[in-house]
Design a protein around this nucleic acid. Structure first.
Lengths: 337, 337
DNA sequence: GGGCTTGATGTAAGCGTTTACATGTGCCTA
DNA sequence: TAGGCACATGTAAACGCTTACATCAAGCCC
């Protein structure tokens, strides 16, 4: 490994001058600059970024804690974050937490031990209270796709209430009145918010969400399958079902297919997330998309702002809106009349 | 930030002793150990891993270069690698390359600048020759899911030829004789190998792959769609089509659906990859699965072995076999007779 | 021509660790 | 009792950089 000292000798200057030539070119003379450049090229010198970080106390590294890599949900966010940071030559060091509070905290700390200047945390398992506690000692953190009242300006998240409302409004606009829903675990604020949004939209239009038509799932497809069957078994009348994730919608679609219930002719299905999965389902799933990549990007930007203690980051978007992606799984009841 | 010096003062010993207490406990006396432990706890000391890395010249970090994060293909591999490395408390620092040779090289180098002890490289754009050249100066590298004759023992990959052969044999066993195929780009060795494997399996059974039934795709679903249409338009008879990726199979399925061709009744479709996507297709796709997670894991292990110059890593699997996952998109022609 | 500024460079002290080597104590052995 | 050895600890020099501060020469002004 060739070090700055060797470059200095080769160029016949001091290490300080080499360092300056590389980092603050306007502080060094033309001629010296040239000598250094030659030395660097000749020797194939590449600065040791770790040593540089230690000396300058800035690692130019951001840590990311997520559940796992092998889910497009995280994939999109991490891609957004990494890209945003890469363009400012920050590195991303990512660790998966395994979806338990201990793992999340451990990853959080170990990333900090690596001198990450800030952490982008996707906390699933940590409760609001735990988060509140831990955050105090680890203020250089950005919560990705999660809202916490105590650290509002360090959260980047989807407006789930509006998302749920959007879903309801869309279904209403298509003439649906008897609407069922399969939610995520109600222990997740996302699930509660989406549900209350849906409820609001119905209320605004003078309708009510029938509690018997609300099933609690877990975002995974097998629960979508189970819940859809429950709904169908209940004998209750409904023309559409809003699933709080595309995966559950996939399960619901499967249930319908098995029972010979046609989608969208007999029942309309609306998803949530906007993953590629939705596109590949049959029928192609109409869904409420959350801009995951953008959320990741914003998280990256905000993490940088937090790391550099930049006071004004009002230009970074922190609240994102969902949008409906229209495909073929929702029937327009207005057409038929 | 509390440093080792503060701990030393607090415990009334030298920094060397603190360091030893933490890293080589058997070198320090019971009583001293206790004092240090108290100091560490009291002060909440956490070693700076960057400084530690600099001093001990071992960063305990492995770099990973991939195309992008938002594809389950990479997601599974990276998950495997990160998990394997995490269990030995190595960190993974991942960078996406944007699928161009320049990006791949840049990421490779910049990860090395961060003192990664080894790099796990998923090279798509770099040619064999370029790779050969670059590898010489960057020997601490593992090629993930790619084979290169010059560095065989630093490659972890799927046996694509056998994979293609497996596909052919499976289709033959189901009574198919007129087999079409949609390949990846023939500039990729994966595509060539899978094709030649398929060809072999037919030859072994005394049949031949009709060149008119071979379409070159690009692994993406829209090309699957296009190629399937071409095949159907050609008027040539075939009972099954082997797609070299699940995504292309999805496109092919779409094409069939649009034209009213039933799968598997009229045409059987076999995929490749074994992503979740395959499960969610209609009909559920029978596919040849590559063990991506395991490949990632092995890459992590091998990278560690390379980094530590462990001479014997014969216990690490480097060649993986594909397996067929049977679902509902391939008809058994033997049944009908 | 003395005092000042300005610009370019060097000197050396960090950054927070690890680790080779030196030191010192106690114990065993001859 | 001297010599030797083990063991526990301390001292200080790395690791590869950055950067505050010192130095020095050159140019300028009055």
């Amino acid at each position: 490994m060739v070090t700055i000292a060797q470059v200095a000798v080769y160029a016949g200057v001091s290490t300080a001058t080499v360092s300056r030539a590389l980092n603050k070119p306007d502080l060094v003379d033309e001629k010296t600059m040239a000598k250094v450049r030659v030395a660097v090229d000749e020797l194939g010198y590449r600065p040791n970024q770790v040593a540089r970080g230690l000396a300058s106390r800035s690692s130019r590294t951001i840590g990311v804690v997520i559940n796992c890599f092998n889910s497009p949900y995280y994939g999109h966010m991490i891609q957004g974050a990494e890209k945003a940071l890469r363009t400012i030559s920050y590195k991303t060091i990512a660790e998966s937490s395994g979806e338990n509070a201990g793992g999340e905290k451990a990853a959080w700390d170990s990333l900090l031990d690596r001198q990450c200047e800030a952490i982008i945390l996707h906390a699933d398992a940590l409760s609001d209270d735990e988060l509140s506690e831990l955050f105090k000692a680890r203020p250089m953190t950005v919560l990705m796709n999660r809202y916490h009242p105590d650290f509002e300006d360090q959260c980047v998240y989807l407006d789930n209430k509006k998302g749920g409302q959007l879903a309801g409004e869309y279904l209403l606009s298509k003439g649906h009145r008897a609407i069922a829903t399969i939610t995520g675990p109600t222990s997740y604020y996302e699930a509660r918010d989406r549900l209350s949004g849906l409820r609001n939209s119905l209320a605004n239009a003078g309708f009510e969400l029938d509690p018997a038509l609300v099933e609690e799932g877990n975002f995974r497809d097998d629960m979508g399958f189970t819940c859809m069957n429950r709904l169908l078994d209940s004998g209750k009348h409904f023309t559409a079902v809003f699933c709080q994730s595309d995966e559950m919608a996939a399960g619901a679609l499967d249930a319908c297919r098995q029972r010979g219930v046609r989608v969208p002719e007999d029942i309309s299905v609306l998803g949530f997330d906007g993953l590629e999965l939705a596109y590949h389902l049959t029928p192609k799933l109409t869904t409420v998309r959350q801009p995951l990549r953008e959320i990741g990007e914003a998280s990256g930007l905000l993490a940088y702002a937090v790391a550099t203690k930049s006071t004004d980051h009002s230009d970074i978007q922190r609240i994102f809106a969902a949008e409906v992606v229209e495909r073929s799984s929702v029937l327009d009841l207005n057409d038929g009349s």
